[in-house]
Every structure is written in structure tokens, then in C-alpha cells.
Simulated scan of single mutants.
Amino acid sequence: MTGTRRGAQPTLTGRRVRLRPWRPGDATEVLAACQDPEIQRWTQVPVPYTAEHAQDFVAGIAPRTWDDGGALFAVEPLGGGGLVGSMGLFPPADGFGEVGYWTAPAHRGQGLTAEALGVLAGWASDAAGLHRVELHIDPANSGSRRVAEAAGFTAEGTIRQRFLHRGRPGDVVLYARLAGDPGR
């Protein structure tokens, strides 16, 4: 997908969530969410996370990711209620792509992130033509592991010292969802 001219990034809809392109006005909610210690613990967001980081994410990184063949989406509940989180597909290659996400504290434990992940994985398989979507999750991140499993991803094993987080190598559990897996 990289290097090809793409149309506008779509909006994706599930039963309870909408995944839409980021807008500049979202920076305030991104800034607030990324102050959360759990988001900082499990993701690659800069620490400390500043207003400039949030603005660059919504107005710079998100559009560049789309231009490079991936997609970053703001996740919101269909009925309103503020930002649920971020859901992204990194630019894929060779028919597979990696996804990542974070959830704002007020929306954890409601199943919205799992639904959004399922919507994104389905879109990646159907519209983007990927045969495999992967997640790399720290073994201790039980919340993210539950989200992956609820979205139809299968744990394939632990990859030792695969991930460099804040300068330290760490293990990850490799999760994957194939285009033909049940539950799609």
C-alpha cells in the first residue's frame, strides 16, 4: 500500500463504536488521555506527554501514517461520550500489518476497544487486503491481552526481547488474526 495514491481515510462503524480520522480539535482529549500512567506504561507515547506531542499526533503523525499506507483512527462511542481511544494499523507490507491501540481510562472495561479492534482488523482484511493482522503485547499487560482475545486474535507465543520500550528490551506475546479466522 505504501507509495500508492489513496483516497480519503474512511470512517468505520461497529455496533457501538465509530473509528474516524483524527481531527486537529482532538488534541486536547489526546493530551488528557496520554497523561494516564497506564498508557505511558504500555505504549510508546513520549513521557512527559505535552500539548505539542498531542497536536503533532493528530495533525502530523496520523495523516502521514495514512499517506504511508497505514491508518490511525480516533475511537468514539456511537452514542457520544468523548474519546474512547486510539486504534491504528501501521503501514503494512507483504500482506500483513501490525496494529496498536490505547484506551482512555474512563472507557476501560466496557468492551469498546475490543469492538474497535475487531472493526479495524476486519477492515484491514477486507478493504486493505491483508491476510494477517498482528499485535505485540507485553506479557504483563493483561488488559490488552483480554482485548486482543475478545477481538478474535490468537496468542501464538512469546517472543523474547522483541520490543524496546523506554530503552529496555522486553518480551512480547505475539497475537494474530488471519483473514479466514472464525469470528470475523
Rank of each mutant, 00 (worst) to 15 (best):
A62M: 04
G100R: 02
E98W: 04
T50Q: 04
G60P: 13
L89W: 13
V47H: 12
S86V: 03
R64A: 14
A54V: 06
L72G: 01
H53Q: 03
D68H: 14
M87H: 06
T103R: 10
E38W: 07
L72W: 08
Y49E: 05
A54H: 01
D94H: 14
W66N: 05
L89Q: 12
A93Y: 10
G109P: 12
D67V: 13
G97H: 10
G80W: 07
Y101A: 05
Y101E: 05
C34H: 04
Q44V: 15
A104Y: 03
T65I: 06
G109C: 11
A71F: 07
W42P: 03
S86T: 08
D68G: 10
P46R: 07
D94G: 10
G81W: 13
V75E: 08
G60C: 12
G82V: 04
A106N: 12
Q35K: 07
D36Y: 08
M87C: 13
L78C: 03
F90A: 15
G97C: 09
F90G: 11
V58T: 12
G60L: 07
E98R: 09
Y101F: 15
P77R: 15
G85C: 05
G111P: 13
F73V: 00
H53L: 01
F96D: 14
A51R: 15
P92D: 11
G95T: 10
G95C: 08
D36L: 08
G111Q: 09
M87S: 10
G60R: 13
S86Q: 10
M87R: 07
G82R: 09
R64N: 13
W42C: 12
V58H: 05
